[in-house]
Amino acid sequence: MVCILGIEGSANKVGVGIIRDGEVLANPRETFIAPLGEGFRPSETAQHHRQKIVQLVIKALHEAGIQDPEKMLDGIAHTKGPGMNAPLQVCAVVARTIALSWNLPIIPVNHCIGHIEMGRLITGADNPVVLYVSGGNTQVISYSAQKYRIFGETIDLAVGNCLDRFARTIRLSNDPSPGYNIEQAAKKGKKFLQIPYTIKGMDVSFSGILAFIESKGLEALRNGLYTKEDLCFSLQETIFSMLIEITERAMAHTGSKELLLVGGVACNLRLQEMARIMCEERRAKIFATDERFCIDNGAMIAQAAYLMFNAGLQSTVDKTTTTQRYRTDQVNVVWR
């Protein structure tokens, strides 16, 4: 039996997860919520993580029933990147400390790979096309020859970033998350505003949409022609259609019959619904998880590390650096 403790904190969530042979023993998490109208800043986010991380480790060990970590754990994993530097380092420091004091190997993990491997574990999807959508990432991924290859991605903003910034311009709350509040508001929207729709091959672009919303969208709001709810609805319908379309393009291009949704934006139920309809139309199977696992969490880092550990991959404390940019297709997927 192999048991790994994983620490994630690349953005505004900090989490500690423990996985033993595919079973999630514990996965507590805390979220830093930025004040109204603001995004989360690196230094404040890191401070939040510093304040929460020790109690999260203790909580995870307790929930998992691990009294003697040195004996009962086989490795400590942390997110190497991509993400925000200061918060990443908080987690790396804690990971190194406990790895040294419990005399355990340390395993640095690519955050995106964590999402994919957790999705595969939870849903049982075998070899899916992966739509990975979150605050910082927008990628359509498919595996071949030891790499998770990126078929489509955003050529400018990430989808979650676009949604978050839109939420700020219309002053929606960041609690529990801007995306969640847009989703709720969109349910009450009725009138569809035409928003630029930009697809380039299997890639998408959101910068024009944001610029449009910040000028024409706000104007329509002021004129009383459209409500906030209408804007949320129109934005969601447009952006999600673009995502589903590039996903379908990648599925047609690779001939894949499975789709896995991961990342924070993937817990949006409207996005899941659209993906399901698209998959039905092409007789493909859809796999999605709920907010426990599609939002950043510690177990996903533990799970990727578990696969890496079993494949003989581990690092030493002096080599466990972090990096803000770390592409999904840079990782050698030796465990598949």
Binding site: A11, G135, G136, N137, E153, I155, A158, N161, R325
Partner: peptide, 13 residues
């Protein structure tokens, strides 16, 4: 320039 933009893009979250 476009390639560089792709590689330098922040990937937070």
């Amino acid at each position: 320039a476009i390639r560089l933009r792709g590689r330098k893009r922040d990937m937070v979250g």
